[in-house]
Design a protein around this nucleic acid. Structure first.
Length: 352
RNA sequence: UGUCCCAUUGUGUAAUGGUAGCACAGCAGAUUUUGGUUCUGUCAGUCUAGGUUCGAAUCCUAGUGGGACAA
């Protein structure tokens, strides 16, 4: 329970369905403390209050160290290597599910549940994610890394409902204030939403390690100066400070030469990627050249692509051009509503 | 040194002599369980000095700066 509307309604729905519900809230970062008590964070306090009103048991787990070691360190490492991390994808299996299941075992609970917008299916003995009922809120993109064991014990009480229905439930159950809370999450451990500032604050000697360098065009011509490559991500347009008469986007980042290549929207498109860290979900493996819909970012409906397994990785060839394929981000393979597999985008260039 | 061309917001450009528009960048907001994208709004300009004209970015003169030719 995060204190927000989704996990609170998930708890309400489970309780109404007759489950014996226990609420768990994590403390993963030094978020602002509640101004009255100075003891717990605002979010934890709100989650505890919801649990109290539902008359359910509630526990708080301090996972700041674990979160730091697995999520924040990863986040920093990826940007330091010129890649673009997705902390939620790492956090879900490694933190949320791992410690929720651990708590479930100590508390003698059979299942765990979260407030994610997703559904679970099972075919041929395999568990897999299905897109949420509300296509605008579907969060399967962030959950592709969950294992079979994790999925087997998971419930998604709100996956079959729309955001509007969730709000109505909260209101009808007397949680009017929750239904009005803003959606905005962004990176949960970066309070001011400024990840660039976070990196320069967190990385010792940032200015010494990541020096300013050149923005260049596709032919290598210098067209501007960048402020250290961790400040940028592929597809980025804002904040480049280079005017060309048409919008410029970050095409690629080369940490070795400390150069960042800029170009037009057309040049940003790519038709190939290699994915690693594959997690097979609905299928145990894939056939050569299977046609699937591939999502390479959260807010995207997916591109038609052919998928070729190559050892421990996948080669994905898009039918058309995919926009801003970004190493470090996830690619999730869908067959209709079902998540077939997922992986991390490793490279976008043809290789042997 | 001689001839010619150019000079508009931070950048690139537009405006039959009638009082300055567009794009990019910047800034702000919207959207969002990653980053990026996208959308909306907004700031800002006629090189300088004279002159012609009811009126000049637009015409004339000089200056300044840049470019192209030329022994």
């Amino acid at each position: 329970m995060s204190g927000g509307i989704d996990s609170s309604v998930a708890a309400i729905l489970l309780k109404d369905a007759g489950w014996e519900v226990i609420g768990i809230t994590y403390r993963i970062y030094d978020n602002p403390l509640d101004s009255d008590t100075e003891e717990e964070t605002v979010a934890i306090k709100e989650a505890r209050e919801v649990a109290e009103r539902l008359h359910i048991e509630h526990h708080t787990l301090d996972l700041r160290r674990e979160f730091r070691e697995t999520v924040i360190d990863y986040f920093i490492r990826e940007y330091s290597e010129g890649r673009t991390p997705n902390p939620c994808v790492v956090c879900n299996p490694a933190i949320k599910w791992t410690y929720l299941l651990e708590a479930a075992d100590t508390l003698n609970c059979t299942r765990i549940a979260t407030g994610h917008y997703a559904r679970i299916g099972k075919e041929n003995g395999r568990y897999f994610l299905k897109k949420a009922e509300d296509p605008l809120k579907d969060q399967t993109y962030f959950l592709w890394k969950l294992s079979q064991e994790q999925l087997a014990r998971t419930l998604f009480p709100i996956g079959g409902l729309t955001k509007e229905e969730i709000r109505n439930i909260a209101r009808s159950k007397g949680f009017a204030r929750l239904s009005k809370k803003s959606e905005s999450q962004e990176i949960c451990f970066i309070p001011d939403n400024n990840y660039r500032k976070f990196l320069t604050d967190e990385i010792p000697d940032f200015e010494k390690i990541f020096k300013p360098g050149d923005f260049v065009d596709n032919r290598g011509k210098v067209i501007g100066a960048h402020k250290g490559f961790p400040n940028y991500t592929i597809g980025q347009r804002k904040g480049l400070g280079v005017a060309a008469g048409y919008p410029l986007y970050v095409l690629s980042i080369d940490p070795q030469s400390n150069k960042i290549i800029l170009g037009s929207k057309e040049e940003l498109g790519g038709s190939l990627l290699y994915a690693t860290d594959i997690n097979y979900m609905k299928r145990q493996t894939l056939c050569d050249g299977e046609n699937l819909s591939v999502k390479i970012r959260y807010r995207n409906t997916g591109y038609d692509a052919s998928v070729y397994p190559e050892g421990h990785r996948l080669r994905i060839e898009f039918r058309g051009k995919a926009d801003a394929i970004t190493p470090g981000q996830s690619c999730v393979l869908y067959e209709g509503e079902d998540v077939v597999a997922g992986g991390i985008i490793h490279s976008v260039r043809p290789e042997k």
